[in-house]
Design a protein around this nucleic acid. Structure first.
Lengths: 336, 336
DNA sequence: CCTGCAGCTGAAAAGGATTTCATCCCCTCG
DNA sequence: CGAGGGGATGAAATCCTTTTCAGCTGCAGG
C-alpha cells in the first residue's frame, strides 16, 4: 500500500515546478497566474489533498479547535456547541467536540490531546474548578476560552451568564408568587455555577426578610443530572415540613424533580418549580414551567468569536464576558 | 516563544541516551530497566509530553477516531456517541465528535479533515445516501464504519437497526389497537432509514387488508426534525378525512406531531401516536407514549468495537450488524 | 548602458517523532 | 577458546509540508 496517495512533490513534478511553488499556490504566496493554473490543474488531476499532519507539524499549529464539554446529553451544551460551530463555520477552522462526562480524568486526556495535536485553540466548559489544568496549554501559547464555568486561578478569557443575578430573580419570582418554604437544589460543591446560583437564592431570601431562610435546611447539592435532581427532591419531600417550592439550578435536575413530585402526586403550580435553564423539549410539558432562560447558543458563539480573535493574534487584555439571563414567565408559577 | 517546550531530544540528552531509546521507552521497545527508569525520570522532570503531530506524521496514523453525526441536538445521536466513547475508552484512542448538521457540505469538510489528519478510523452516520463520499478514506486504507444509515455503494462495515421490521411492528400495533386511518410521517426521500421504516408501514397495512392503504394519501416525507414533524402533522390534520393515528419515523418529529395535535386539542390516545425512537425526556410526557425503542447506545458501542477491530488490522470480510428494536408498549395507545 | 529594485522561483532546512539498519556487547554452546 | 546468536543501542533516514534564503529575471530610472 502506498503511504500517501499523492504528495506535494507529485504535483510539483506533474506541473513542472518545485514543491515550494505548489505550497505557495495553496497558501496564497506570490505565483505567476499561468503557473498557478497549471499547478491547480495538476493537483486536481492527481486528486491531491494536502497532508494536514505535515502541515501542522511545520506550522506548529493545526487548523482545528477543540470544544470540551462536560455532558453531551445536556441540550444546553449541545446548543452551545451549535453556537461555536456556526461561528467557526465562517473561518477555515474545524471544530471537534470532546465529551468529558464531568470526569476530570477524561477531561485531562482531552486537554493533552489538544496540546499534543497542536490545536489552534480550545474552548472548555470545565469539569472542575480546581482540577482542570489549563496551564500547559497556556504555557504553550494556545488560546483558551472558558465557557459557562470558570476554572480557578486560570488566566483565560471567559464567557459566562449572570448566575447570581439569575438565581436571585428566580427566587424572588417564587416569593412573589406566594411560596414561603422555598428550597434550592444546586450543583456540585465548588462549581462556580452551583455556588453563584445558590448565592443568588440566598440573597433573595435574605432580602425578603419575612421568608425565614431556615439556614440551609432546604439546600441540597446534587450533580446537575436527572438522577441527582430526583434524589434531592425525594430528600426534601421526606422532611418533616417539606418545601412548597424549589429553585433548581439546572435543566436536567428539574426533570428529576418533576418526576419525584409526580411520584407523590404533586405538580406545579401546587408546588412551585423554577428551573435555571429551560427544560429540554419544554413543549412536552403541561403546564409549562417558568424558567430562567439561558443564552446557550450565544454563549458558544461569543466564546468562539473571542477564541478566533485570539487565534488571529489580537493582543487585547483578558476579557470576561457576562451574558444576561432572562426570566421566562409562564403560567405554571401562578402561585400555590 | 520556544516552539516546543521539550522534545524527545531534550529528554535524551538529560538521560544520557539517544532519542531512539527515549522513543522505545514510551512505545514498548526493548530497553534495559535501569535506562528506562532514568529516561522516565528525565521525562517527568522536564515535563515532556510527546508531540502527537510528529508521531502521526511518522506513523501515518493518528490516535484519534472521528464520529460524524448529522444532528448533535438529537438525543438518539448523543446516546450513540456515548456508546462509541465508552468503547474507545478502553483503548488509547480518543474520540472526537463532528456535527454535520445533515449538511453534505459540512460533512464533506469533516471527511476531508479526517483524511488529512490521518485519523485512525471514522464512524459516520451519513447525511446522505448518495452524496456522502467515503471512497477517499477507503482508498487510503482508513477503516470506516457506517452507523444507523448506510451510504449507497460504499464498501464498508455497517451497524443499523431493523428499520423495516420495526416499522411493521409499530404499524401493526396501531392496527390492533383499533385505529383504521393510519398515517405515516417519515424522513427525507432517499434516506435508508426513511424508506425502510416506510416500507414496514406499507407492509403492515397491506397485509392487514381491511385497513385500506389509501395509496400514499396519508404518507408524508419530512426532515427528521421537530419543525418538519409539526408541519407534516398540520397538513394531515387539514385533510378532508384526517387520520386517526400516525406512525412517526423518528423521535424529534414526534415532538412536533404532539405539538400540532395539541394545537387542535387532540392528544393520545384519542389519536394514535407511535414513535420510531423514544421521545427524549419521555418522563415529561403524560400520558406516556408507546414507541419503538432503539438501541442507540449499543449501536455506537457495536460500531466502535467493529472499528477498533479493523484498526487492529483484523482482516475478516465486511460485516453488517443489524440490531433488534423493541416495541415498548405504554398506556397511551390503548385505542381510539 | 548600468544600477537597483521588485517579484518570482527553487534548494534546502526545519519541524519532532518512529524505525531501520548496522554495530556492539555479552553470553552460551560446541 | 572460538563462533554464533540475541538483545540493546545509536546514527540516520523518513514522514510531508512550510519557509527561509539566495539567486535569477526583467524592468525602470538615471
Amino acid at each position: 500500500m502506498r503511504t500517501q496517495v499523492v504528495t506535494i512533490h507529485d504535483v510539483a513534478r506533474a506541473a513542472g515546478v518545485s514543491p515550494a511553488t505548489v505550497s505557495r499556490v495553496f497558501n496564497g504566496g506570490r505565483v505567476t497566474p499561468e503557473r498557478a493554473l497549471s499547478v491547480q490543474q495538476a493537483a486536481a488531476a492527481l486528486g491531491f489533498a494536502p497532508n494536514r499532519v505535515a502541515r501542522s507539524l511545520r506550522k506548529q499549529r493545526s487548523s482545528v479547535i477543540a470544544l470540551i464539554i462536560p455532558d453531551i446529553e445536556n441540550p444546553f451544551f449541545t446548543s452551545l456547541a451549535r453556537g461555536v460551530e456556526d461561528a467557526a463555520q465562517r473561518t477555515s477552522l474545524s471544530v471537534v467536540l470532546c465529551n468529558s462526562d464531568e470526569d476530570t480524568d477524561k477531561e485531562r486526556r482531552y486537554l493533552e490531546v489538544a496540546l499534543g495535536e497542536q490545536m489552534a485553540g480550545v474552548i472548555v466548559a470545565a469539569a472542575s474548578q480546581d482540577e482542570t489544568d489549563l496551564a500547559p496549554l497556556i504555557a504553550r501559547g494556545v488560546p483558551v476560552v472558558a465557557v459557562d464555568r470558570r476554572p480557578h486561578a486560570a488566566e483565560v478569557d471567559a464567557v459566562q451568564v449572570d448566575n447570581q443575578h439569575g438565581g436571585e430573580v428566580a427566587t424572588r419570582h417564587l416569593l412573589r408568587a406566594g411560596y414561603r418554604r422555598i428550597a434550592c437544589i444546586t450543583g456540585p460543591r465548588g462549581a462556580s455555577t452551583s455556588e453563584e446560583r445558590l448565592a443568588g437564592y440566598r440573597t433573595a431570601l435574605y432580602s425578603a426578610g419575612d421568608a425565614a431562610p431556615a439556614g440551609d435546611a432546604y439546600v441540597r447539592h446534587a450533580d446537575f443530572r436527572v438522577e441527582g435532581g430526583r434524589a434531592a427532591m425525594r430528600e426534601l419531600l421526606a422532611l418533616p415540613e417539606p418545601p412548597d417550592a424549589v429553585f433548581v439550578a439546572n435543566n436536567l435536575m428539574t426533570i428529576g424533580v418533576l418526576d419525584a413530585l409526580r411520584e407523590v402526586g404533586r405538580t406545579p403550580p401546587g408546588v412551585g418549580v423554577l428551573s435555571f435553564g429551560d427544560v429540554p423539549w419544554a413543549s412536552l410539558l403541561r403546564p409549562s414551567l417558568t424558567a430562567v432562560e439561558l443564552p446557550s447558543y450565544e454563549l458558544g458563539r461569543t466564546a468562539a468569536d473571542l477564541l478566533l480573535q485570539r487565534i488571529e493574534g489580537k493582543p487585547s487584555p483578558l476579557q470576561t464576558v457576562v451574558l444576561r439571563t432572562r426570566l421566562q414567565v409562564r403560567e405554571s408559577t401562578a402561585g400555590p
